[in-house]
């Protein structure tokens, strides 16, 4: 079970809800992924188009834990405001702190992320900060009392996979709260690797929504994360330089 704050989840796949080709495909992808946590962004409503469909209205929201993000925020204050707006919906008390510091790389601003996390913890939110893969930042966030650490595997939407596995392994080793690898996952093997390394979960979006067949990719990610987790729990063999035979030499039949 994945425990975050007062929540418990069977699924270790957190799914984003952006950029799907249409709501029908998105619904099928969500269903097959068996994700229990879905991320959302908070945006202005088009008040002149009341009938505009909204993905949330297609879901039985009681079946999911909503994880709104603070995307768009560039300062801690902006992130806190978005988090408060999200909470006022009455649908959630979790928040993904996302304070972007650079337009091109969409890398998070560590100082603002730390400040926002501190302010939101004081207000009683379940706080999940999206961070760079910096070990000390992860420690500082943990010391504040965040409920999970979400280091990026590589920049958002790049699909480059885990570009710094060493740093990620350091973060996982020292973690006292769940580590959710967030952003940059491209292939199921990336997600599986994160889980094999001991991550507690994976948050992805574009890898599924941008796949040729998003529904099949959602299934592939679910299976990869389950396989990676099982592999981690099973404990892989150490790597050795030279071969060791699987079949015994004893009893070998000769002419």
């Amino acid at each position: 079970m994945l425990k975050i704050g007062h929540y418990e989840f069977r699924s270790r796949l957190l799914l984003g809800t952006g950029k799907f080709p249409n709501f029908e495909i998105q619904k099928q992808a969500v269903d097959i992924s068996e994700s229990q946590i879905l991320t959302f962004a908070v945006r202005r409503m088009n008040i002149f188009e009341a009938s505009q469909p909204n993905f949330l209205s297609m879901l039985d929201v009681s079946q999911f834990t909503l994880l709104p993000n603070t995307a768009g925020a560039k300062t801690a204050e902006e992130a806190v405001r978005i988090a408060r707006l999200a909470k006022a919906s009455g649908l959630c008390d979790m928040i993904k702190v996302e304070v972007i510091g650079d337009e091109r790389t969409l890398l998070p601003d560590p100082v603002e992320t730390l400040r926002a996390s501190e302010m939101l913890l004081a207000e009683g939110f379940i706080v999940l900060p999206y961070t760079s893969d910096d070990v000390l930042l992860a420690k500082r966030l943990q010391d504040l009392g965040v409920h999970a650490i979400m280091p990026g595997a590589s920049p958002i939407g790049t699909g480059q996979g885990i570009v710094n596995p060493l740093n990620l392994s350091f973060i996982i080793e020292q973690a006292t709260v769940p580590v959710i690898v967030d952003a940059g996952i491209g292939a199921p093997s990336d997600a599986a690797l994160a889980m094999e390394m001991g991550a507690d979960g994976v948050l992805l979006n574009t890898a599924v929504s941008g796949a040729k067949d998003p529904v099949k990719m959602a299934l592939a990610m679910k299976l990869a994360i389950e396989a990676g987790r099982a592999g981690f729990e099973a404990g892989r063999i150490p790597k050795k330089r030279y071969a060791s035979a699987s079949s015994p030499m004893e009893g070998f039949s000769r002419v």
Binding site: A41, R43, L56, N69, L85, L203
Partner: peptide, 9 residues
């Protein structure tokens, strides 16, 4: 301001 949840990652 009137806001709602939209798709996002």
């Amino acid at each position: 301001e009137i806001v709602h949840f939209v798709g996002g990652g």
